[in-house]
Nucleic acid binder design. Structure first.
Length: 247
DNA sequence: AAAGCCGCCAACCGCTCCTCG
DNA sequence: GCGAGGAGCGGTTGGCGGCTT
């Protein structure tokens, strides 16, 4: 295949993990804690590279991991978060207690990617030509900015979920918000994060809403500098507010 | 029964980001 | 400021099991 192994050292084992290897890794992390992956190989007596150990721990051995059976609520949340964050699987996973980025990514690619989603939302990978499109480039910058949003810790995520408004049975606001109204309600805390994420952004016209809806869709107009400036300001405010979510 | 196909998912790779000296 | 090494992330691959022909 021509692929270079991630660990060039001789004697580093690859492929499926055995129960014995799992035990060695789990014991090591129990005694020494997470991190220092590069020293795991030496100190735990594993013939695995640090990256492999880290992946195995995060995706399989870590406590409180839920496996399989993605619920309808979780699926709804994944769709909404993907709408908001794009392919930021680790960010999405950070907001869904017990799920790993790898599992969510796999679930998306094998299930949700095939499902028809509302509006003009394009859930799968961005098209190749996107990078050469100025509008797409602007959006890409916006997504980069959004990627700075820090992780929403699990307790917060759970408390959000427990409010019930993230569930599929949540009652949607019938109002056709302008994005400004939406933004002011969210900003003044009259609207919770759950309600914010539950909003039907497709009814909104301006760029901010477009980015939230958009993911990788390419239908957003970009006409003049004022619109761009407004978009930038809202996006910056959004990022700042996101910082507060985890406080 | 067997061969081929397909979907799922664990694991790997390459890249970027972060930290530290 | 810069480079090296480690950590983390997203895209991709490949093995395996189930299904179809």
């Amino acid at each position: 295949m021509g692929r270079r192994p991630c660990c060039s050292k001789e004697g580093v084992k690859r492929g499926p993990w055995t129960a014995q290897e799992d035990k060695l890794l789990a014991d090591y992390i129990r005694d020494h804690g997470e991190g220092k992956w590069s020293s795991v190989q030496k100190q735990a007596g594993l013939k695995r590279c640090g990256k492999s150990c880290r992946l195995r721990w995060l995706n399989y051995l870590r406590p409180n991991i839920k496996r399989g059976n993605i619920t309808q609520d979780e699926e709804d949340l994944i769709i909404r978060l993907h709408k908001l964050l794009g392919n930021r699987w680790s960010l999405i996973a950070g907001r869904i207690p017990g799920r790993t980025d790898n599992e969510i990514k796999n679930y998306w690619n094998t299930n949700l990617c095939k499902k028809p989603l509302p509006n003009n939302f394009v859930p799968c990978r961005p098209s190749e030509e996107a990078s050469s499109d100025p509008q797409q480039e602007q959006q890409s910058k916006a997504e980069d900015k959004l990627s700075n949003v820090p992780k929403y810790n699990n307790q917060n995520a759970e408390s959000e979920s427990s409010e019930g408004s993230l569930s599929s049975s949540a009652t949607r606001e019938e109002e056709d918000y302008s994005s400004h109204d939406l933004w002011m309600n969210f900003y003044t805390r009259e609207m919770s994060l759950s309600q914010f994420l539950d909003t039907d952004f497709s009814n909104m016209s301006n760029l901010f809403a477009g980015v939230i809806v958009g993911g990788y869709s390419s239908t957003k107009p970009m006409h003049d500098d004022d619109v761009e400036a407004d978009f930038g300001a809202q996006l910056a405010a959004f990022t700042d507010l996101a910082d507060e979510w985890i406080m």
